[in-house]
């Protein structure tokens, strides 16, 4: 029947009438992937929808498709048990029969402004022409965007982590410099200058820091998919939680390189500033 109704060449007049009645009686609904899984729905199934829990004024709909809800970072913890109807079907389902205005009311009107139109000006004009209607730009300003705040929070945590790891790096470099005390004494003895030794330490620090940063970026890059999969499974969403971008990788290297050089120089300077005899413990 489904196939026949969608192939007009197969229809007789009576069958066409029957199909028209059947299709008219069951308008289409799209259901979210999560709702389809929860309610074991497939395309072509018939479902009954009502606006209240008592099932009053229920109507039958045909599942025309299953969709993946657009990932929304503001609602990633919410279960996306949703469906989409054509607006006239939704109004017919929910409108109050005793209130004629409810059949002409919607909650939101989305619009795209023509190029060059100032959003704030448009909203002000709208408010003056239609009192009670409030307009909002879909683009968030930095003042009311919670993700800007979260970004600052993550940045603060990153700074603390970098400061902590720099202290550890410095401790390791100090140990390493102590280990090479005798070597440095001999090198100084044979006439290699402090400047040359400091340069070699700086280069060593730079190479170590860049190698560490590259390893870190590679680790982040390889675990990115795993982290995303864990959180996507946990919250049943297609939202991408972690994304290692080239800009982010460059920033990591740019922070690590000067820190590595500085730690190496600071640790070695405690030895290099001494005279040669004290390096030999004399």
């Amino acid at each position: 029947m489904q196939w026949a109704c969608h192939n007009p060449a197969m229809l007789t007049f009576v069958a066409a009438l029957a199909c028209a009645i059947a299709l008219d009686a069951a308008p289409d609904v799209l259901v979210s992937r999560q709702l389809a899984a929860r309610a074991h729905l497939t395309v072509g199934d018939t479902v009954t929808l009502a606006a209240d829990a008592n099932g009053a004024r229920a109507r039958t709909f045909r599942v025309a498709g299953v969709y993946e809800p657009t990932p929304d970072p503001m609602r990633f913890t919410a279960e996306r048990i949703e469906g989409r109807l054509h607006l006239p079907d939704l109004i017919a389902l929910t409108a109050d029969p005793h209130d004629p205005a409810s059949a002409e009311s919607v909650n939101t009107i989305n619009m795209t402004l023509a190029p060059g139109i100032d959003t704030r000006r448009f909203i002000a004009d709208l408010a003056s022409q239609a009192p009670g209607v409030t307009g909002w730009p879909t683009a968030r300003s930095r003042d009311d965007d919670p993700f800007v705040v979260l970004d600052r929070f993550h940045l603060a945590i990153s700074v603390v982590t970098v400061v902590g790891s720099t202290a550890f790096l410095l401790a390791l470099m100090v140990i390493r410099a102590e280990e090479r005390r005798d070597t440095i004494a001999i090198l100084r003895m044979v006439g290699i200058s402090r400047r040359s030794l400091l340069t070699s330490v700086a280069v060593e620090g730079l190479v170590t820091a860049i190698a560490g940063a590259i390893f870190g970026v590679a680790l982040a890059f390889t675990t990115e998919g795993l982290v995303n999969r864990i959180f996507q499974t946990r919250y049943d969403t297609a939202l991408v939680f972690v994304r290692v971008t080239p800009a982010l990788a460059w920033r990591a290297v740019a922070v690590a390189a000067p820190l590595g050089i500085a730690a190496g120089l600071a640790a070695s300077w405690t030895l290099l500033r001494r005279n040669i005899l004290s390096l030999f413990r004399r």
Binding site: V160, T161, V163, G164, S165, A167, F168, L170, A171, V174, I175, E178, T270
Partner: peptide, 13 residues
């Protein structure tokens, strides 16, 4: 020196 640096690192973390 290394003790102080290690303590500082642990304190921050």
């Amino acid at each position: 020196a290394r003790t102080l640096l290690a303590v500082a690192g642990v304190a921050i973390i």
